[in-house]
Design a protein around this nucleic acid. Structure first.
Lengths: 219, 219
DNA sequence: TCCACTTTGTTGTAAATCCAACAGACCTAT
DNA sequence: ATAGGTCTGTTGGATTTACAACAAAGTGGA
């Protein structure tokens, strides 16, 4: 656990908590560290979920999948970020999404009721943890509305431009890399991969953008 | 305020709070009751937001609108439900959506920092309020993922069937009414209204469903 | 290195969507 | 009752997308 302290102290859930208290707090929360290989399933849609995770290393994806394998990527979770917390705190019976690793990852799991239920040692932290969690879930909600803003564009071209502009804005540069390969990007934008590839090439030919693998540049 | 007590006691935010304490709690939170006509703007995208609302009567819509008037309906909020809370608790500078009434409405506004900040009278309630709020925002997040599940269907036909099935499920009946007119439904599904109308007629001709105005029946 | 596998781009065709324009039905207010 | 406005369904043509099939490039393991 010690080697991840630097990441842990930057996790939004622990904002406002003294760094020195972190170790004992984590012990008190019964936080569990687990290593995963690439492509492993963490949560499976349909199961019930009582804990959430924090990515200490690697990357995980939250995806929706319907009866006939139509996949949609809800979120891409990188180092220092949480996943599953909205589902855990909504007290729902069956998970509507699946979560899996896209790279080898180190994940920290915490039972959601440990956050809520006061305990002998960490009581002082609980109200702060719950407030932080509220903040995190609210931000995730907003992030989803921004997903929707992109997905609801009427054409593949507009979707691509909206997404790439948002990524450029995030990276604060016209050059940036995206966390998706082509198929994943198509799933994210809810379009056909080959059709999207054609539109990408068209945009390249028009001089609007350049790309190489997952490196993009808006011109 | 008294005439809305029946609704207030069913509001998820006040779950677990003694009905008799509700009046004083609301006073303590400086809750403000406001009447609105149909079609009035409550929150405008771009402004900063510090309070959230509760619908005591009527209905409001949360919409996204881009540069060229392409509208997308994020959520439809009916009696007893909250709006704006995710944006208020995310502490963001500018609101990415607008909120307006679709019918004459009675709304209750509460400052978000009043929920968080303890006060002399209602202290005992705050931790419960924050926990309830976390639960509400988490549920809204899930509701958005279900929106996305519908929106990301590849064809208008699939979107309609997914949406109408979900509504039928909610109503626990094959007959149900929807809170949208045709243009709003098209905005919600992110498709062209006239094209959607054509698909609806096609489904009717195939005997899959019947409809009259906003009354639908799945066959 | 070589082979199998994955990823990406390309192309052609069929199908679906957008868009604009319009007509009839339906309000609503005078 | 009527006139103006809104809502809904219909249609046709231009555009876009999905789908399938394939080739080229890249990747990883034996």
């Amino acid at each position: 656990m010690e080697k991840y302290l630097n990441i842990l102290k930057s996790v939004a859930l622990f904002k406002g908590i003294n760094q020195g208290d972190l170790q004992s707090l984590l012990a008190c929360l019964s936080a569990k560290l687990v290593n995963y290989d690439k492509g492993q399933i963490i949560f499976m849609s349909g199961e019930s979920i009582k804990s959430f995770g924090i990515v200490l290393a690697g990357q995980v994806q939250v995806v929706q999948e319907d009866y006939y394998g139509n996949k949609n990527i809800i979120a891409n979770i990188g180092t220092g970020n949480l996943f599953g917390e909205s589902f855990a705190f909504a007290n729902i019976k069956t998970l509507p999404v699946s979560v899996f690793t896209t790279t080898a990852s180190v994940l920290l799991f915490i039972d959601s009721h440990r956050i809520v239920a006061p305990c002998s040692k960490a009581c002082a932290f609980h109200s702060r943890l719950i407030y932080n969690m509220l903040n995190i879930v609210a931000l995730k909600y907003i992030s989803l509305t921004q997903n929707i803003e992109i997905i609801t564009k009427r054409s593949t071209r507009e979707k691509l431009l909206a997404y790439l502009s948002a990524e450029a804005h995030k990276a604060q540069s016209t050059r940036f890399s995206i966390p998706f390969n082509r198929q994943e990007l198509a799933d994210y934008l809810a379009v056909d991969r080959s059709a999207m590839s054609a539109v990408l090439s068209q945009l390249r030919d028009e001089g609007v953008l350049k790309f190489n693998k997952n490196q993009f540049e808006l011109c």
